[in-house]
Amino acid sequence: MPRVFIPAPARDLTGGLVELDVEAVSVRRLIESLETRFPGFRDRVLEEGDLKPGLRIAIDGHISAMGLLSRLEPESEVHFLTAVGGG
């Protein structure tokens, strides 16, 4: 089952949970599963049906160009990368 890592800005929705296994064959399905378990998650990562600007998906160590359409394997590791800056 793919393992997803929750980005820091969305961990208030997961009660601080950082990583969990989710049954999903694509990133889009994974987000729907997370929305069911953690209502509000979808709105944190999607805007008008697509990934929010400044959000990228990394699967198994590579930044994906396919976004929501990215396919997941049972052993996939999925990370949401958020655009952050200095200060």
């Binding site: 929010k52 400044g54 959000l55 655009a83």
Partner: peptide
């Protein structure tokens, strides 16, 4: 390439 747009939430 990594972040093509100014992220509005930042």
């Amino acid at each position: 390439c990594l972040y093509p747009e100014d992220p509005p939430s930042w």
